[in-house]
Design a binder for these strands. Sequence first.
DNA 1: TTACACCTTTACGTAACGTCAATGTAAATA
DNA 2: TATTTACATTGACGTTACGTAAAGGTGTAA
Lengths: 254, 254
Amino acid sequence: MEYTVQKLGKLAGVSTRTLRYYDEIGILKPARINSSGYRIYGQKEVDLLQQILFYRELGVSLDQIKKIVTSPSFDLTHALKEHRDKLLAKREQLDKLIANVDKTLATREGRMTMTDQEKFEGFKQKLIDENEKMYGEEIRSKYGNEVVDQSNQKLKNMTKEQYAEVEKLSEDILSTLKKAFATGDPAGELAQKAADLHRRWLLFYWDGYTKEAHASVAQMYVDDERFTAYYDKVGTGAAEFLRDAIHIYTGIKK
Amino acid sequence: MEYTVQKLGKLAGVSTRTLRYYDEIGILKPARINSSGYRIYGQKEVDLLQQILFYRELGVSLDQIKKIVTSPSFDLTHALKEHRDKLLAKREQLDKLIANVDKTLATREGRMTMTDQEKFEGFKQKLIDENEKMYGEEIRSKYGNEVVDQSNQKLKNMTKEQYAEVEKLSEDILSTLKKAFATGDPAGELAQKAADLHRRWLLFYWDGYTKEAHASVAQMYVDDERFTAYYDKVGTGAAEFLRDAIHIYTGIKK
DNA sequence: TTACACCTTTACGTAACGTCAATGTAAATA
DNA sequence: TATTTACATTGACGTTACGTAAAGGTGTAA
């Protein structure tokens, strides 16, 4: 049986380029070249190619393979042992890399959750505390703990993408609030949009959204100086403005 | 503190070529270029290089590193996780390679010992049988079993190098025997050299070399047609010639 | 004859530098 | 000050095992 490059390539599962390359580096020469300059391979070459591909499978370099297949006295066992040593060293190196990447990831994730917590923990606690203060023991025993638990769960399960969305919402709230604040009308379209964004933002933390809780948080923004300061970045009195807008949005007035 | 390429290179443990390459691919540009065209690096670049080398340590490609260090919003955690996946896949691949090389080695070594045994087992058995026949029960119970055991051990423990030496000795015996046979003098220098080579050859199989056993083996070469045929390749009557030479060499005549 | 599949050689691209080569500059020494 | 020595520059080729055109010749079927 005789083969052209493509036929042999298909037979062995290699590209024609590979066969030409093997010819070029002298590792597998065709049995003959026909009158048109085509490479013609015979059975012997098929067998040799199989040999070559076998060693290639083992990760042996073509240079080494060449030595193996061209020199009959080549000490294959020794070569393979050396090759195995190299592979083992490589794996050790890989293991180190993997361990390092893992460690780095762990550190980063540790930092990430810390950052998350730094960002939210205080706020969350504040929310809970204020909530409690506002609604008192009665309401807390009713659904306060539940809300707290869910909030904690949500925070812990939040993905980076979700976090990014939350941040975007935060920014949107501020920018919308700024425009709304400029109109001076808490019942206006912009102010109501800000209130709606704020509701969506809250949904990232609360499962059991209620108008009452929303209104209560809005009041808190006015009562707690830290939140007041945060929203007053938009303009002096913005916290009150947002509270008014939310109270209108929720239909609840305290 | 300002650094030229070499100073920074020494500081960070990389070559100047590496620094130029990093400049070339835009991963680490010097802080400025002085009037002579020298690259001048500052503290910021030192820090960045450390970053770069850290990721390089992790096996991250420079292309990826570039993305990491040039885009602050790059999702490093995600990138590292993907990178780790790649490393894990690589290790799996490596493990397969290693297992295959091991298997190949085992097969080869199995074949090797089989080949050894094919080559020696029959001969060894013959030796033992003949020895037994010649010396009878008495001598066999005296040291025959011991010799057999040691011979077996030696054969099994023979390294490839030792085997190669044995083969070389075999060839030397034949070529020397040929030349000696041409002289027709079993007491001559060449014949005695052949006898000595034969002794050394026997030592590879026997620990407890004795002149008697050696002389006995020599006689066996004449008695057993297979060995006679082997040595008569050198010339008709070569087995007898070798026997005579060995008998002279050992000083034992049967 | 035309189309189409298949062949050829030539040559650039890959990743991350190593290694000259040719040449200019800064610092140290005679 | 002149020279040596050390260090800088850019340019370019080499490395591995092919992938991927490009430009053009060949074989065969419709």
